[in-house]
Design a binder for these strands. Sequence first.
DNA 1: GTGAAAGCGCTAACAA
DNA 2: TTGTTAGCGCTTTCAC
Lengths: 295, 295
Amino acid sequence: LEAADELGYTPNAIARGLVAQSTKLIALLFRYFNPFYAPILREFAALLQDQGYWPLLLEMSDDNDLEETLPMAFRYRVDGIIITSANLTSTLAGTCRRLGMPVVLFNRYTLMGGVNAVRCDNVAGGRMAADAILDGGAEAIAYLAGDEHSSTNRDREQGFVERLEEHGCSLTCRDRGDYTYESGYAAARRLLAGDSRPDGIFCACDMMALGVLDCARFELGIQVPEELRVVGFDGIQMAGWPSYSLTTLRQPLEEMIDSTIRVLLDAVETSSSSTIIETFPPTLIERSSTLGAAG
Amino acid sequence: LEAADELGYTPNAIARGLVAQSTKLIALLFRYFNPFYAPILREFAALLQDQGYWPLLLEMSDDNDLEETLPMAFRYRVDGIIITSANLTSTLAGTCRRLGMPVVLFNRYTLMGGVNAVRCDNVAGGRMAADAILDGGAEAIAYLAGDEHSSTNRDREQGFVERLEEHGCSLTCRDRGDYTYESGYAAARRLLAGDSRPDGIFCACDMMALGVLDCARFELGIQVPEELRVVGFDGIQMAGWPSYSLTTLRQPLEEMIDSTIRVLLDAVETSSSSTIIETFPPTLIERSSTLGAAG
DNA sequence: GTGAAAGCGCTAACAA
DNA sequence: TTGTTAGCGCTTTCAC
């Protein structure tokens, strides 16, 4: 028998999945593959594989797409679903619940029952950003928003504005991008060209902040941090590169990813019914985009 | 019957796969998720989905891992395999062939029978890099290598050295990195600290070139391009950002990705037996890391 | 203990 | 056209 196996036999995971009612497949739904999400995707894939699960990658071009994309996960009878950068509708959440399909949202949350989430405390992060930007000496302060519908963006802005107000400040202006470098660059041009030019900008993510820095320095000739303080969010690797040296709020991604996998596989393996929302604190990393003294 | 369907029925793709002997699953094997590969992954996922196939993501931490990882693709009876940034052993290639499992290598190639490949003409790219770096006025020239075992790295170096020699030049020094920013930064420190300091460096990829630029400018105070010309390879988005403005060889990724999908799905759907290797030309994009005049 | 049989949810081939 | 049946490759159960 051993010899027979060696002449080219491989167990069929599909047939096994059919009878075992467990495919060991986890759907990984992604909408952005930028320098923030790329390492996250890698880590999810690596950890799932370590635990004997395999990621079925589902790409969404836009948000509504989820309504079309998620059903494919159902068809393949995945054991669970991880969703990043997209918002679940209540219909979809209901379907998951009815199917007993565990779901974890990563980097966003909803209070709909049955939808687990792992996120960072964006309100606290927004507050820390306000402190950093005010400490840097800014007085006319702008917020550069991301997706208006996401809890992530909403919470960052809320914490930021809240804390500004505690210091007797408020937002001078506000613009919006789509989390890309290009959109940050373009927004900086709009924000910094107006009459009431801000001298501090808090960006909803690091990628947009990099675009703001490049536009300010190379196109508009604005000195950072003397004339403009910039704070990002996420703590991507590039924020630490000397060309940018961006002050940012680092999300504890490793812990968040570990936690996501743990919550998901717990739900898969024990089919427990409680809904878990885990929140991790961000860390302020001050660099020379707000600090005159440092590097 | 319609009504019955609406009360929660979803076709089971697993059962269908079992009987149809076709799962509509494509294995996507990845080793790096850096800013070069992230958009590639996204594009593969999007195109496969458009054609009714779904990517099963297999992550490899190192090269040898393929021997463990690929068999999982066999277990799930994927319809085909796309491999990026890893080298197939002849054993593995033989197994694929025996199983009638179509494989396409992306961004590398092998002459082993049955293994399709889509790549860019790295020898030609290396030659163009030599021209650009010599035109920029460099005389003492270094190559910063990537993975020594990959055809990609080998061909780039070969074309580069070949063309240097046609101009009566040769490599002054040579170092190696692992395609990351950090490894480029560290290699620049070694290369530029020695007595025979190069005044031109061709890097096997853009990410390493960005590290070289940051080290040269911020740690060593070297003027680019006056004292040092830098050329990268790949044409990642960041190479065009004004903080770097890196001369590079752009790979025509869209065409390469389209072609990969076409070659793979052709093989899947027609089970043709010919082996295809498609080669695309890179384009030189000259920016201020070699050109004194430009922006 | 070892061996045969039933069935997971589909599709394809065949009968009616 | 519509309905029934066999079987994909496995696991689990039940009989031996």
